[in-house]
């Protein structure tokens, strides 16, 4: 268990009327998260899927102590963050280790100048000035926004704002970054940029990436997919395993990537095609083989 950066045991959470946790599971309000046990290894690239209101954001917020679970344990980097004697200083250490990027880029940027916004996290950590400077420059470089260092955030495009928001997190040198639907409000170009940065961070800096998303094509690129449904962790496996369960996904209001769906339809019509192809290239190859064979029924 040494290389587990995140470990959850029987994690549960219920929102009370004020949106904070209550001490006992109430019978009226269904739990937003119900008995979730999962371990995530250092450097993994994880996608989390689930329909609206299934508890994905709640799950994310439990990992950096924005919310406190009513039940269960959370270990971050080997430390139990749910134990009683956890101090405030330790809490902020956890938050600097587990960064979070949200959906609306506008609502994450605090300062009126790009570089001051990126500096916000390191400033809160109380780092010396030279170190903040270094981190800000590096982070802006990583997301390709160095030339905008002195711009006002409100004049940037959505994708650019989101990249600045990511830089703000990178500057805290986290070990895990959770992207909570960070591509949802972006156009295709912005989405690709953000996805590329996400994967680069995972590949080159060995940062554990958790991408909460509604885009199946994005999820198909991850190492591992978690499916949360009505607060419960339903499936946990490789994208190939998960997306080949097309019928099951439909039953919980989800879909497979479009190509996989197409192959699934074809196969249910009796054509001889593989149903575990998930990337576009694989689906393309499968269709090409099928057409090469003259599209014969199996």
């Amino acid at each position: 268990m040494e290389n587990c950066i995140i470990k959850n045991e029987n994690l549960s959470f219920v929102y009370d009327d004020e949106g904070t946790s209550v001490s006992a599971v109430s019978a009226v309000i269904p739990p937003a998260l119900d008995d979730v046990t999962v371990s995530i290894k250092k450097g993994e690239y994880i996608a989390v899927l689930g329909h609206n209101g299934s508890g994905k954001s709640t799950f994310a917020k439990l990992l950096n102590m924005i919310l406190k679970p009513i039940n269960g344990r959370v270990y971050i980097d080997g430390k139990d963050i749910t134990c009683e004697e956890f101090t405030e200083d330790e809490m902020f250490e956890v938050r600097s280790k587990v960064g979070m990027v949200f959906q609306n880029p506008d609502n994450q940027l605090v300062a009126t100048v790009v570089e001051e916004d990126v500096a916000f996290g390191p400033e809160n950590l109380g780092l010396p000035r030279a170190e903040i400077r270094k981190r800000v420059d590096e982070a802006l470089d990583v997301v390709g926004m160095a030339e905008y260092a002195n711009h006002a955030p409100h004049k940037l495009s959505g994708g650019q704002k989101q990249r600045v928001a990511i830089a703000g997190i990178i500057a805290m040198k986290p070990k895990v970054i959770i992207f909570d639907e960070s591509t949802a409000m972006l156009d295709p170009l912005g989405r690709r940029e953000v996805l590329e940065i996400m994967e680069k961070l995972n590949r080159e800096d060995n940062i554990t990436v958790i991408n909460i998303t509604h885009y199946m094509e994005e999820a198909a690129r991850a190492d591992r997919v978690l499916i949360i449904n009505d607060g419960k962790l339903l499936l946990d496996g490789s994208p190939r395993e998960i997306f080949s369960k097309v019928d099951f996904l439909h039953s919980i209001g989800l879909e497979s990537p479009q190509g996989t769906e197409l192959l699934f339809e074809l196969s249910s019509l009796g054509y001889d095609v593989p149903t575990d192809a998930i990337s576009e290239d694989e689906c393309y190859d499968a269709l090409k083989t099928l057409l090469g064979k003259g599209g014969k029924l199996a």
Binding site: K61, N64, I66, E88, F92, R95, S96, G99, M100, F102, N104, N107, Q108, V110, E115, E116, A119, F120, G121, P122, E123, N124, L125, G126, L127, P128, R129, I132, R133, V136, A165, G168, I169, M172
Partner: peptide, 22 residues
Amino acid sequence: ELAIAMECRCYRGDKNRTKLVK
């Protein structure tokens, strides 16, 4: 949302806070 984003970025008032531009 901004409040949560700020908390995620370790905002805790001016306790132990430094500045990029002095």
